[in-house]
């Protein structure tokens, strides 16, 4: 890519080459169509320019032609649609093994929190070859997380989670942009995605010191008093949260919902919106009491309860990083 006149963006994710291939196909079809129209208009305009004594030859039209140039372009466009939808489906379906990273957007910065506890602002470090899933929300207005080198973009909304996943392929520094207009410093709300080789990434991870997100969540879970009701040993007043994540939940009104990120989030902020069957609506609402970051930690904790292998590993690994802590404190 030329530094002064870039004509093509870097390809740095598994998705980039796929999108580019489709883009090239579209460019070719569009190029041929444009050339044909330009050529036809030019040739016809010159060939049939007015000559004295030669009158225009009136033609009413042709139903065959009309059907032809309605149906054939439609099928060509159908290939655009199908190919585009296939790519989109992949972009919107995160693999189950993806490592989660929490993103909170606010005017005008990106606050990023790794599941291991590292915090970053306007920078996101990721290793190559690993599926990363961003779980994003906004504290104020709508933003949009855009990485041109990955060909990916997702709006980030207040009051709910949206997700974006990718697998980076080429180490380097790539632009991160906010793509949804968000006020004064919209154009300054950018940063870098730093893609590293896995070994470099491991070094970077070890460099900082932090408490894993789920561990923070567990602390909050007890300090906010959640653990007095949500417990497994005795019959609590609230449902036991172990193993509920991503599973169907039977609601009081007969509906069944999947306990995904947005469900857990809503159940903390507004518990009466969806009441689990067999329980009373007694839980207080935490809207305005917990911040978006605290909420992310709580969600990460609830999730960790459903991942016996990974979840406990994450918590057991926590002490492994703690030797670093005394040095900082």
């Amino acid at each position: 890519m030329s530094k002064y006149l870039p004509l093509w963006p870097d390809q740095a994710s598994t998705m980039a080459s796929q999108v580019d291939l489709l883009y090239i196909y579209l460019l070719l079809v569009a190029g041929v169509m444009t050339a044909l129209i330009f050529l036809a208009v030019t040739v016809l305009a010159i060939k049939y320019r007015r000559r004295p004594g030669v009158a225009a030859h009136q033609i009413e039209g042709s139903t065959i032609l009309e059907l032809g140039w309605s149906i054939i372009p439609f099928f060509v466009m159908l290939t655009f649609f199908i190919w585009g939808a296939v790519i989109f489906f992949q972009e919107r379906t995160p693999p189950a093994d993806a490592t989660e990273v929490y993103v909170v957007a606010k005017q005008w910065m990106w606050k990023i929190e790794h599941i291991e506890g590292q915090h970053e602002i306007n920078e996101l470090h990721v290793p190559t070859g690993q599926n990363i899933k961003l779980i994003m929300t906004s504290q104020d207005v709508i933003h949009s997380f855009y990485i041109p080198a990955f060909r990916l973009k997702q709006d980030v909304l207040p009051g709910r989670y949206t997700t974006l996943w990718f697998k980076a392929t080429v180490p380097g520094r790539y632009h991160l942009f906010c793509a949804e207009y968000c006020g004064t410093m919209h154009s300054g709300m950018g940063g870098d995605i730093v893609v590293m080789k896995p070994e470099d990434y491991a070094l970077w991870m070890a460099g900082g010191s932090s408490t894993p997100l789920a561990e923070n969540g567990r602390a909050l879970f007890s300090s906010l008093g959640c653990s007095t009701c949500h417990r497994s040993d005795v019959k609590g007043r609230g449902p036991d949260l172990a193993g509920i994540y991503d599973k169907p939940v039977q609601l009081d009104d007969g509906r069944t919902v999947i306990a995904d990120d947005n469900y857990v989030r809503e159940s903390i902020l507004d518990p009466t919106a969806k009441i689990v069957s067999g329980f009373k609506p007694v839980m207080p609402a935490f809207q305005g009491i917990v911040t978006d970051e605290q909420l992310n930690a709580l969600v990460a904790y609830v999730k960790s309860l459903s991942q016996p292998a990974q979840g406990s590993a994450a918590l057991q690994n926590a002490p492994a990083t703690s030797p670093g802590q005394p040095e900082v404190q």
């Binding site: 796929q18 999108v19 489709l22 883009y23 579209l26 569009a30 169509m33 444009t34 129209i37 330009f38 208009v41 466009m77 655009f80 649609f81 190919w83 585009g84 939808a85 296939v86 790519i87 989109f88 972009e91 949009s144 855009y146 041109p148 060909r151 990916l152 973009k153 793509a179 949804e180």
Partner: peptide, 25 residues
């Protein structure tokens, strides 16, 4: 005719989901 052809065809790019994610906004 020329400009509308280009404008219309690039509209198809934007209607194509996989491309739109990258080029919208």
């Amino acid at each position: 005719i020329g400009l509308f052809t280009i404008g219309g065809l690039t509209g198809l790019f934007l209607g194509t989901l996989g491309i739109d994610v990258h080029v919208t906004d």
